[in-house]
Simulated assay, not measured.
Amino acid sequence: MPDYFHGYAVVGLVAVVGVLFVTVAFGANALLRPTVPTEEKLLTYECGVDPVGEGWAHTQVRYYVYAFLYVIFAVDSVFLFPWATVFAADGFGGTTLVEMFVFLGFLTVGLLYAWKKGVLTWT
């Protein structure tokens, strides 16, 4: 029975050490950092431009669509590299090839749908 709980004890110990490390780091940060809040330091700052007007601004939806398309193709590339290593292994060639074509087919259908809806036109 002691061997059974040994794995849980190691995981629990690592979790406790992790929580203590984060707590000590945040505590040291709070004690050692200089805190001199001024009006200028409390302003919202973005890209070196001082804020002017109200905080709400209209943004075109198409920028989000391009971001989503980027994420889709980034996920595709992350999936391609492990697939290429498994494809070379013995006995996995045909199965992994079919799986990759199914995966790329889903991505192609999504891209064609976005193209048909006119999402990819920059106007």
Rank of each mutant, 00 (worst) to 15 (best):
L32T: 13
L13H: 07
F87E: 09
G12V: 09
G53A: 04
E40L: 00
G48Y: 07
G12L: 15
V65Y: 08
Y113M: 06
F81D: 02
G48H: 08
G18T: 15
F21R: 10
L80Q: 07
V109M: 10
V102A: 15
V86G: 00
T85K: 03
T23W: 10
W56H: 08
W115R: 11
K116V: 08
K116M: 04
V78I: 15
F26D: 12
V11D: 08
V102E: 05
L43I: 04
L43Y: 05
W83K: 03
F68Y: 11
G94L: 12
D3K: 13
E54C: 01
D76I: 00
G53W: 00
L111N: 11
T85D: 02
F26K: 14
L107W: 07
A15E: 01
Y4V: 15
P2N: 11
A84D: 02
H6I: 11
A89C: 09
S77Q: 06
V109F: 08
V22K: 07
I72E: 08
D76E: 10
A88Y: 04
L31Y: 14
T35L: 01
V61N: 00
Y64L: 09
P82C: 00
T96Q: 01
D3W: 13
D90P: 09
A15H: 02
V49P: 03
A84P: 00
D90H: 08
G12D: 12
G55I: 03
A30P: 00
G93I: 01
A67K: 07
V65T: 04
A25D: 13
V14D: 05
Y70T: 14
S77C: 09
A114W: 03
L111F: 15
F5S: 10
G91D: 01
Y8N: 04
D76N: 10
Q60N: 07
D90W: 05
F87K: 05
I72P: 01
V36C: 07
Y64R: 07
T123Q: 14
G118I: 03
G94F: 12
K41F: 00
W83F: 12
Q60M: 06
L112K: 02
M100E: 14
K41H: 01
A15S: 10
E99G: 06
G48V: 05
L13R: 11
W115E: 10
L111K: 01
F26E: 15
L69P: 00
Y66T: 06
A25W: 15
V16W: 14
A15M: 04
L112T: 07
V17Q: 06
L42V: 00
V11L: 11
F79T: 13
M100W: 15
F101R: 09
V65N: 03
G53C: 06
L120E: 09
T38D: 08
Y8G: 12
E39I: 03
W56M: 02
Q60K: 11
T95V: 14
Q60E: 06
H6Y: 13
L20Y: 13
R62K: 12
G93L: 00
L20R: 11
A74N: 01
M1T: 09
P82K: 03
A84N: 02
Q60L: 05
L107D: 08
